[in-house]
């Protein structure tokens, strides 16, 4: 299960107390009424019913609202963000690693581009290029 944001988490933790409280109250109520009256169906007072209903609905709404954004189902929408995630800094990406499953960050097909194929990485040429860049004053980027 994805981790909820901290603020909502604390609200939900507090709200969890209310249904517990109402269950306990109704138990207490049934005990006291059992001893005094002999009616077969002792009615639960209105305040306990209201407390239960309101706290449960707050919990439901809170859990739904507290979820992180869903990942797009459509490939093209996801691909658009994944493509831009390539150049975004960590923390500003649309999809970070490990969030909502999958460790893929950026375009999973990037390794097919020229210059990105690690298996065929040409260290000798890259080193020469770098040396040339340093000689030329290392001010501008060679690759523009």
């Amino acid at each position: 299960m994805p981790i909820l944001p901290l603020k909502i988490q604390s609200v939900l933790a507090n709200t969890l107390f209310l249904p517990t409280n109402s269950v306990y109250s109704s138990y207490e109520h049934s005990l006291t009424h059992e001893s005094t009256t002999s009616t077969p169906n002792p009615t639960i007072p209105l305040d306990i019913i209201l407390e239960t209903l309101i706290s449960i609905s707050i919990l439901c709404v809170g859990i739904v609202l507290g979820q992180p954004d869903l990942r797009p189902i459509e490939w093209r929408v996801w691909a658009c963000e994944a493509e831009k995630d390539e150049r975004r800094e960590k923390g500003k990406r649309a999809f970070e690693a490990g969030e909502g499953g999958g460790a893929v960050v950026g375009n999973p097909f990037r390794f097919l581009e020229s210059g990105e194929r690690r298996g065929f990485w040409d260290g000798r040429t890259k080193r020469k290029e770098f040396a040339a860049w340093v000689r030329d004053g290392s001010a501008t980027d060679v690759k523009i």
Binding site: E86, A97, V105, G106, E113, G115, E116
Partner: peptide, 8 residues
């Protein structure tokens, strides 16, 4: 996850 086309 470094960016693509890393410049010198």
């Amino acid at each position: 996850y470094p960016p693509p086309n890393i410049s010198p």
